[in-house]
């Protein structure tokens, strides 16, 4: 890897470093180089949202960003959502309201919902549907997810 670059970033509060080709997608870097396989790959063209993480506090797709672009950034992935061994209210609510089945969309869905509630702490049902329309879930029909986000919003306010 003569043309490898070094990428240094903070993930879930921990400073991490790796070397990769410039063409390496951020999601592949997270999964393969940092061993953080909680962020999933569903399409690699920005549609499904499975790879959504927070970059400097804002939700974004990690499949249409290069690892090298995240150099110096602060990332939050699903592995960092729990605090002090406790589930985040969103995680709790997803469990309570059956907001997941196969679990594959769940990490991206949770990160998207987190950003949604930060930008709009009291969303209506329509706003929740619009917000989570950024992520495809094939299992749940979104019903439990909408209920979970409503419940988490109440709790987080």
């Amino acid at each position: 890897m003569a043309d490898a670059v070094t990428v240094r970033l903070t993930v879930n509060g921990v400073e991490r470093e790796g070397r990769c080709e410039p063409r390496k997608l951020l999601v592949d870097f997270l999964r393969e180089d940092l061993g953080l396989t909680g962020t999933h790959v569903g399409c690699e063209h920005g549609i499904c949202g499975a790879c959504t993480i927070l970059i400097d506090g804002e939700a974004a797709r990690s499949c249409i960003m290069l690892a090298v672009q995240a150099d110096g950034a602060e990332l939050l992935t699903i592995e960092g959502l729990m605090r002090d061994g406790k589930l985040h209210p969103l995680q709790e609510a997803f469990r309570e309201h059956h907001g997941l089945q196969c679990g594959f969309c769940t990490p991206g869905m949770l990160m998207t919902a987190l950003d949604l509630l930060r930008t709009n702490p009291s969303p209506t049902e329509a706003e929740i549907r619009e917000g989570i329309s950024a992520v495809l879930c094939r299992c749940t029909g979104y019903h439990g997810i909408v209920r979970a986000v409503e419940a988490a919003a109440r709790k987080m306010r």
């Binding site: 953080l36 999933h40 992935t77 699903i78 469990r95 679990g103």
Partner: peptide, 19 residues
């Protein structure tokens, strides 16, 4: 009953083939 499998999926600890 709330699902027992949720704990690992909600925390990014599921193990799919690609993982």
């Amino acid at each position: 009953v709330r699902r027992v499998e949720d704990a690992r999926f909600l925390t990014g600890q599921g193990r799919y083939v690609a993982d």
